[in-house]
Design a protein around this nucleic acid. Structure first.
Lengths: 139, 139
DNA sequence: GTGTTTGCAAAGTGTTTGCAATTTA
DNA sequence: TAAATTGCAAACACTTTGCAAACAC
């Protein structure tokens, strides 16, 4: 039952991942992990950082997001050609993607189920099974 | 049991869709629809066209792919941020995406099943449920 | 100090657009 | 001929990269 570890949370995460806790990484980690699960793009995170008076370049935001993803701290979600979303919830779950607003949200656990995932073609192994429920304002 | 209509196939499709059958559209439609189901990017289709001595610009390939998609002749599949795939099979089915090769292929029918698709957040309706089985060469 | 990380600006990728020239009905 | 379509090149959005300066240990 992992609960909120408000302060050293971000620091711990970086340490555990073997990432040097620089000012920028710490600040971004706080934005990403101190609250509830988040779905965010690089641009959004960059804006948030600037809004919070965290001086960080967009390039560093991209680098950091990818480092966090490699370290297993984030999961990258592909829903939109030409934009990458990162999810702070790395456990297996699925997504709603609102085509109108571009907002990504979690499908509540325990309802949607995928069964009968087939054996992939010769010599390949399944890495993940991603389900995206595309929604839009009812007509 | 719809079977092969080799020659006028592409022409019929364009007519049915209300798209003026220009030289370029006809040629692209033939490449897309005359054989089995295909998963293809704009660049790939453009290369194929050039290889087949069909003079067509990349911009027109993009326009055409989108017109075909709007007309319901194609389905756009998002598996890779920064690249769009188009599927000539518009019926409901799911995909393997090979992360190593970038090749998209169909999951054989009748195995994979999605159940319990939840009601989407207020006022939205489900447009589609896309399942991507990400695979890579076994380690 | 030494190796890592950052910021910037430039380059890259895939895609879209504006508009004159061409083509289709 | 009138309206739709095409090609080109420029513009675009997002992302990555190269390298000197700044930083963490």
């Amino acid at each position: 039952m992992e609960k909120i570890r408000p302060f050293s949370h971000a620091l711990d995460r970086l340490r555990d991942a073997g990432l040097r806790p620089t000012r920028q990484r710490l600040a971004l980690a706080k934005l990403l992990f101190d609250d509830c699960d988040r779905h965010i793009t690089a641009e959004q995170l960059h804006s948030e950082a600037l809004a919070g008076n965290i001086r960080v370049s967009l390039a560093t935001v991209y680098n950091t997001l990818h480092q966090f993803t490699s370290a297993g701290l984030l999961r990258e979600i592909v829903v939109d050609a030409g934009r990458s979303y990162f999810d702070t919830n790395t456990t297996c779950h699925h997504h709603f993607f609102d085509e109108n607003t571009g907002i990504l949200s979690d499908v509540p656990e325990g309802q949607l189920q995928v069964t009968g995932v087939p054996t992939p073609p010769n010599g390949s192994e399944v890495e993940s099974v991603d389900v995206v429920v595309r929604i839009r304002a009812a007509s």
